[in-house]
Amino acid sequence: MTPDTAPTILIVPGLRDHVAEHWQTLLQTRLRKAASVPPLEYDKLSCAARVAALDEAIAKIDGPIVLVAHSAGVMIAVHWAQIHSRPIHGALLAAPADLEAPMPAGYPTLDVLEDHGWLPIPRKPLPFPSIVGASRDDPLAAFDRVAAMAVDWGSRFVDLGKVGHLNPAAGYGEWPQADSLIRELL
Score class of each variant (00 low, 15 high):
residue 112 V to M: 06
residue 116 H to I: 05
residue 102 P to K: 14
residue 124 K to E: 11
residue 135 S to K: 14
residue 90 G to S: 08
residue 116 H to T: 06
residue 94 A to W: 05
residue 148 A to S: 03
residue 113 L to I: 03
residue 122 P to Y: 06
residue 84 H to Y: 02
residue 135 S to E: 12
residue 139 P to W: 02
residue 92 L to W: 06
residue 136 R to G: 11
residue 95 A to Y: 05
residue 89 H to E: 12
residue 97 A to W: 07
residue 133 G to D: 10
residue 141 A to K: 10
residue 82 Q to Y: 02
residue 105 A to Q: 15
residue 103 M to Y: 04
residue 88 I to V: 14
residue 84 H to P: 01
residue 88 I to H: 14
residue 105 A to H: 15
residue 100 E to I: 00
residue 131 I to L: 08
residue 84 H to C: 04
residue 84 H to R: 04
residue 115 D to Q: 11
residue 117 G to P: 02
residue 105 A to S: 15
residue 99 L to K: 14
residue 136 R to F: 04
residue 91 A to G: 13
residue 130 S to Q: 12
residue 107 Y to L: 13
residue 107 Y to T: 04
residue 121 I to H: 04
residue 120 P to Q: 06
residue 84 H to T: 00
residue 83 I to F: 01
residue 148 A to G: 01
residue 130 S to W: 04
residue 142 A to T: 05
residue 99 L to C: 08
residue 138 D to T: 07
residue 141 A to L: 04
residue 90 G to K: 14
residue 106 G to T: 07
residue 121 I to C: 06
residue 135 S to M: 12
residue 141 A to N: 10
residue 127 P to H: 13
residue 139 P to G: 02
residue 131 I to G: 09
residue 93 L to E: 15
residue 117 G to K: 07
residue 131 I to C: 09
residue 81 A to V: 02
residue 98 D to Q: 06
residue 87 P to R: 15
residue 137 D to T: 00
residue 98 D to W: 04
residue 96 P to L: 11
residue 142 A to P: 01
residue 110 L to A: 09
residue 100 E to V: 01
residue 101 A to C: 03
residue 142 A to N: 12
residue 88 I to T: 13
residue 126 L to Y: 00
residue 122 P to H: 07
residue 86 R to M: 02
residue 83 I to T: 11
residue 120 P to R: 08
residue 137 D to E: 03
residue 120 P to W: 06
residue 113 L to C: 00
residue 89 H to A: 10
residue 127 P to E: 07
residue 141 A to S: 14
residue 132 V to M: 11
residue 98 D to I: 03
residue 125 P to N: 11
residue 101 A to S: 15
residue 107 Y to N: 15
residue 117 G to I: 00
residue 83 I to V: 07
residue 116 H to L: 00
residue 139 P to L: 09
residue 97 A to G: 11
residue 143 F to S: 11
residue 130 S to G: 10
residue 130 S to I: 05
residue 148 A to P: 01
residue 113 L to R: 15
residue 126 L to D: 10
residue 104 P to D: 13
residue 147 A to I: 04
residue 146 V to Y: 14
residue 115 D to M: 09
residue 139 P to R: 15
